[in-house]
């Protein structure tokens, strides 16, 4: 196995105080309490809108709270019963499996690989029409989630008027029903389409930081384009790549609207991701306690995954 050299960081940067030696200005700000004043609103918002709901969700997960029915009047503390139920539920475990597949194929493989290819292409000096190409890639990110989902629902419609069926009709193919016949593949493709722009932006920014001198030196030494990318570029942008993987994993696990408006988790439960399982349990079946427990399990899994990424790459987050 080839060892990967760590990216070189300058000891200090011009205009920046050395570590451990706070400048007089920093001390002054701290002394006047400006930092707490500036951070206060953010901290307050995080506490009110993130921490408090999470704590309340944790509390709900330990109860049998329902939103409708006579049982809703008198919720009981049930300890870990909801967690026992979920971890013994084939439906929940299957939804976790589907979520894993969705993240792996759409985010980790699809968005990352295609985003990287797009970013590399945009660095090519010979490429014409970069603006158009970049805009085309960015467009899916700009479109609101519901609009994107409904647009794809129209494209993949099983009717003969659907865009996909019209296209295959041009080649003599029979009408298909992609959302019924290949539901997971369909939502993977749609999510790749939607997420590729963010990957491209992240990787473009990372590639900008790769010194041209290193690339040129490798080429002078006879490295092929693939070798330059594999042994020079990739190690230098490893941090941003793993940071992207962390972010895209978290956001993809939370994808709801895009899939819900396309398939509602169906057919059957073929695209019932954990986010949809939670929505159904909490709001359609009104079992908010059980839904909260599923959310807590998902949060715990994401934290483990996130910490693993951070540990593996020593990314600063």
């Amino acid at each position: 196995m080839t060892s990967v050299p760590a990216p070189v960081e300058p000891a200090t940067r011009p205009g920046r105080p050395a570590p451990g030696r706070p400048g007089p200005r920093r001390r002054g700000l701290h002394g006047r309490g400006l930092i707490p004043l500036l951070l206060g609103p953010s901290v307050l918002l995080i506490v009110v809108f993130v921490v408090a709901p999470a704590v309340y969700g944790l509390y709900l997960s330990l109860t049998n709270t329902q939103l409708t029915g006579f049982a809703a009047r008198d919720p009981q503390f049930v300890g870990l019963e909801n967690f026992r139920t979920l971890l013994g539920s084939d439906d929940f475990l299957a939804s976790l499996g589907r979520t894993g597949q969705f993240v792996l194929f759409s985010a980790i493989i699809g968005q990352t690989v295609l985003g990287m290819l797009a970013a590399l292409l945009l660095r090519r000096t010979w490429l014409r029409g970069k603006g158009v190409f970049g805009a085309a890639i960015l467009l899916p990110m700009v479109v609101p989630e519901v609009v994107a989902a409904l647009t794809w629902a129209s494209v993949l419609s099983s009717s003969e008027d659907g865009t996909f069926n019209r296209l295959i009709g041009l080649f003599g193919g029979a009408a298909a029903a992609p959302l019924q016949e290949w539901p997971m593949l369909s939502i993977v493709i749609v999510n790749i389409w939607r997420g590729i722009a963010f990957a491209m932006i992240m990787f473009q920014a990372a590639l900008e930081d790769v010194p041209d001198e290193l690339i040129e030196a490798s080429r002078v030494d006879g490295a092929s384009a693939t070798q330059v990318f594999r042994y020079v570029t990739l190690p230098l942008i490893r941090g941003p790549i793993f940071l992207y993987l962390l972010l895209t994993t978290i956001t993809t696990v939370g994808v709801f609207g895009l899939v819900y408006f396309l398939t509602q988790g169906g057919p059957g439960s073929a695209t019932e991701l954990t986010s949809i399982f939670i929505f159904q349990r909490a709001f359609q079946y009104s079992q908010i306690g059980l839904g909260s427990a599923a959310s807590v399990i998902l949060l715990a899994l994401l934290m483990v995954l996130g910490l693993t990424y951070v540990r593996l790459t020593k990314v600063e987050v």
């Binding site: 329902q66 939103l67 409708t68 029915g69 006579f70 049982a71 809703a72 009047r73 009104s286």
Partner: peptide, 8 residues
């Protein structure tokens, strides 16, 4: 039924 049961 569901809403009445919950006291809404």
């Amino acid at each position: 039924t569901g809403f009445a049961g919950a006291g809404y």
